[in-house]
Write a protein that binds this DNA or RNA. Structure first.
Length: 808
RNA sequence: GGGCCCGUAGUCUAACGGCUAUGACGACACCCUUACAAGGUGUAGGUUGCCAGUUCGAAUCUGGUCGGGCCCACCA
């Protein structure tokens, strides 16, 4: 088939995307138990409306691997999921629909979230992923809020409960007063905020002032102790004594602890339950009292006296004014400090003691390290991040959230004795708010009234189960038993410490094995100046626009340019590089197909030396690319194919062989047939090697010509090239020819001549026999337009390797 | 403050401790060559962030330092 003058990427890409889906090119075959299965657990992206460039970068890399494994003949299990439960989705729906979850009926809000996801967000979102050419099996999709995921998530909770790994306890936790829920550390972010350091006077029993600096004077009512460093000479005499708290005039003890930094503030600090995380540590270590200063929505409680009911900031302003008046405020200083805020609400977090569910796992650190070692990390060094995280773990995993859009806890409590009653596995998924517990009477106390759990599970409690969620979609099929553990987890390096880690922990706790065999960690897409892309900086690039302008293949070509785990700055000019590569592929194929018209691919008895040369080079390329792809080094493959195709194949080989293809009358039919074979073999290999990176253009070219001989319905189901032996003699002769052509081109360029101008004479020397030179002589003459060519063999003893004298 | 990674022509990038440090974009000159001017050929452009050290030999190994990224800790 002849190719048109120009390639239209937009039309072509959309055409093949529909083709792939209609023909089921990427279908996993659950009935096939013969072929090796390759299963991929991509972390489902959070539904946020649009795919961003970081997604395009990281998921393209995963897709390249999937396509390579498929071409190796494996049965590739590559489902697609979306992470759409929990706080992020609640916030998104609140914004889109201009509603507030806590001002609506709970069931009504849940219904609104589900409806918005199903009918607006998810379908549009999935479209973006299809548009970059993800080769997922789009008939195997899941959402972390669908019934299937809810069942698995609740089953996980019940299993961990039965294994004694979950517990419910009243404990100080990180609290978001705006969202009114407990949060975990990973849901926080740092923010620089202006604040005031207030130096306030506590009094000793002798009436002396002890000045303590604080940014949170409104918490004075919850002060339970004062701490000083045991070695701090200034305060040593105070240790063990009592101090009177300003405003409230109750007394607290001065205690010694090394956590105090003598250089900060006045070097002596008040402990309130709770102002910050250190307060929790002191509370636990010194068995201090609990004084609750704040309500769940961030207002002062009754112990705050005249400030009762005020919001934190309001109370702070008032108490500072009051202390100023009473003389208890000594000094004020404006400072800028970093505070933790909720990542979704932006609210400054508080610490409140509330009843929450936890998973206990701190006793498993040694095992966690073993589990991490058992994974194959690509690149290897990413394992270190996992290990450091494990070694630094100091809190159990808080899994309850006081929100409504999430997977419900499958739990009720006995009204009398508070004993938890769990749902039966067969009944899952359940919502305790709308269904009844599986028993009539509490086994412990006989009570027959039950209170449903209102909380929902942390979103990570569900997203850490994606290997189970994905593979169990295949339950009941012959392939099911071979899917777990999965072959590969591809993801970026920022989520090693929670998503990857949590998933390993869950798989180990449930099944005693790791969830995957290999872990491939990609880097981040950065802005042109290597800075992080963020909405607030205004440096975000939208992949949709790039695809529209330069094509998905061009974007993928860019994404394949980073070494494993490395960050890659995005520059629009790199889109041009990909686009040009596509054009070059199109044109070289156009040329090749033209000369392959009517050709039946079969190896001629004797190949021309130059043809042997390009085939040998192609075999070297295939060998190298196969190795690098097996090591997940797709960038290496991209680079090698790019260089081979453009320089060796187009600039050298095609130019040299042109004459034989155009003029079989003069050069002989055999010489043409030899070139045709090499052309067929090499271009076919090039297209296949780059197909994982650029699936659309390669499909277009495959369908236009190679399909007739390869038979596979798509290049993406065709066999990865197996290559063949390399030919030392052919490489020697071909490399020599290329060097000579280069010298001739240089001579012509320097005398401002056209490349088609004739060369008067060409005097060559080389370290091989003249009989070998004869094998490339005609091709050299044609490529250089040389009238006469002479060749002389260089003696063994000479230093000289080769020589070329050109007369233009 | 801690951990891991990265730093190579104006920009992006390659390089088992060993040839004159690779290729692309951009620049310049030439060439409309029956696939491609979105092309070809050639030229210029480098103290491989900086400072030490190991080595016959360092972009590559070691230590330090500066800059960037991610994660963590601290944030009275």
């Amino acid at each position: 088939m002849e190719l048109t003058q120009h390639y239209d990427p937009k039309a072509s890409e959309e055409k093949w995307q529909s083709f792939w889906e209609e023909q089921g090119i990427y279908r996993f075959n659950p009935k096939d138990t013969e072929k090796e299965i390759y299963s991929i657990d991509t972390p489902p992206p959070t539904v946020s409306g649009k795919m961003h460039l970081g997604h395009a970068f990281s998921y393209t890399q995963a897709d390249i691997i999937a396509r390579f494994q498929r071409m190796l003949g494996k049965n590739v299990f590559f489902p697609f999921g979306t992470d759409d439960n929990g706080i992020p989705t609640e916030r998104l729906v609140e914004q889109l629909k201009n509603v507030r979850a806590n001002r609506m009926e709970r069931q009504e809000f849940i219904a609104l979230c589900l409806d918005t996801l199903d009918n607006e967000l998810r379908p549009k979102y999935l479209q973006d992923w299809k548009r970059i050419g993800m080769s997922c099996d789009w008939s195997i999709v899941y959402s972390t809020i669908d019934e299937h995921s809810r069942r698995i998530s609740q089953r996980s909770f019940i299993d961990l409960f039965n294994k004694g790994r979950t517990y419910r306890k009243q404990a100080p936790v990180i609290w978001d007063p705006v969202l009114q829920t407990a949060l975990s550390q990973v849901e926080l972010k740092d923010e620089e905020k202006e604040s005031t350091f207030s130096n306030i006077a506590f009094k000793t029993s002798d009436g002396e002032d002890v000045i303590i600096a604080t940014t949170r004077p409104e918490l004075l009512c919850a002060c339970v102790a004062v701490f000083a460093h045991p070695d701090d000479a200034r305060y040593q005499m105070l240790i063990g004594k009592e101090l009177r708290v300003p405003v409230y005039h109750f007394s607290v003890k001065v205690l010694a602890d090394k956590r105090v930094d003598p250089d900060k503030g006045t070097g002596i600090v008040m402990c309130c339950t709770f102002g910050d995380q250190t307060d929790i540590e002191w509370y636990k270590a010194f068995n201090l009292d609990l004084k609750v200063a704040l309500t769940k929505d961030g207002r002062m409680t009754a112990i705050a006296g005249k400030y009762h009911g005020m919001a934190v900031n309001e109370a702070r302003t008032h108490i500072i004014a009051d202390m100023q008046e009473s003389g208890e405020l000594i000094k004020q200083e404006r400072i800028v400090h970093t505070v933790n805020v909720g990542e979704r609400s932006g609210a400054e977090i508080e610490i409140l003691e509330t009843k929450q569910w936890f998973i206990s796992y701190l006793d498993l650190k040694d095992d966690m390290l073993k589990w991490g070692k058992a994974l194959n990390w690509y690149p290897e060094h990413m394992k270190v991040r996992y290990e450091h995280w494990v070694k630094g773990l100091s809190w159990d995993w808080l899994i309850s959230r006081q929100r409504c859009f999430g997977v419900p806890f499958p739990v009720w409590y006995c009204k009398d004795c508070d004993a938890p009653i769990l749902a039966k596995e067969d009944d899952l998924p359940v919502d305790p708010l709308t269904s009844k517990p599986p028993i009539k009477k509490c086994e412990a106390c006989g009570c027959s009234e039950f209170i449903p759990e209102q909380d929902v599970l942390d979103t990570w409690a569900t997203s850490s189960l994606t290997p189970q969620i994905a593979t169990e979609l295949m339950k009941g099929t012959p392939a099911y038993d071979k899917l777990y553990p999965m072959s590969l987890r591809p993801q970026a390096h920022d989520i090693i410490t929670f998503w990857l880690f949590n998933t390993v922990v869950k798989s180990q706790l449930h099944h005693g094995i790791n969830p995957w065999r290999d872990v491939v960690i990609s880097g981040h897409a950065q802005d042109p100046h290597r800075k992080k892309m963020s909405k607030s900086k205004g440096n975000v690039v939208e992949p949709q626009g790039m695809i529209a302008e330069y094509s998905a293949d061009a974007l993928r070509f860019w994404a394949a340019g980073s070494r494993l785990g490395d960050d890659l700055p995005f520059q629009e000019k790199d889109m041009v590089t990909g686009k040009k590569f596509i054009t070059k592929l199109w044109n070289a194929s156009k040329f090749s197909f033209m000369h392959l018209k009517g050709y039946t691919p079969e190896q001629p008895e004797e190949l021309e030396a130059i043809d042997k040369w390009i085939i040998s080079k192609a075999n070297g390329l295939i060998k190298g690319c196969t190795y690098s792809m097996q090591q997940y080094e797709y960038a290496r493959t991209r680079l090698d194919v790019e260089a081979f195709f453009w320089h060796l194949f187009c600039d050298q080989y095609l130019e040299i062989v042109k004459d034989r293809l155009y003029n079989p009358g003069e050069r002989g039919e055999n010489a043409k047939a030899s070139a045709q074979f090499a052309l067929f073999y090499t271009l076919n290999a090039i297209l296949k090697l780059i197909a994982p990176v650029m699936p659309h253009i390669t499909e277009e070219l495959y369908q236009a010509y190679f399909k007739e001989w390869e038979l596979a319905p798509s290049i993406h189901n065709a066999a990865w090239p197996s290559g063949g032996p390399q030919d030392e003699e052919a490489e020697l002769l071909g490399d020599f020819a290329v060097r000579v052509v280069h010298e001739v081109r240089k001579a012509k360029a320097q005398s401002n001549k056209s490349m088609k101008d004739p060369v008067r004479s060409l005097k060559l020397k080389g370290r091989f026999a003249g009989i070998l030179f004869d094998k490339i002589k005609d091709d050299l003459a044609a490529a250089t337009k040389a009238d006469t060519i002479s060749f002389e063999e260089i003696d063994e003893g000479s230093e000289q390797q080769w020589d070329c004298v050109v007369e233009v």
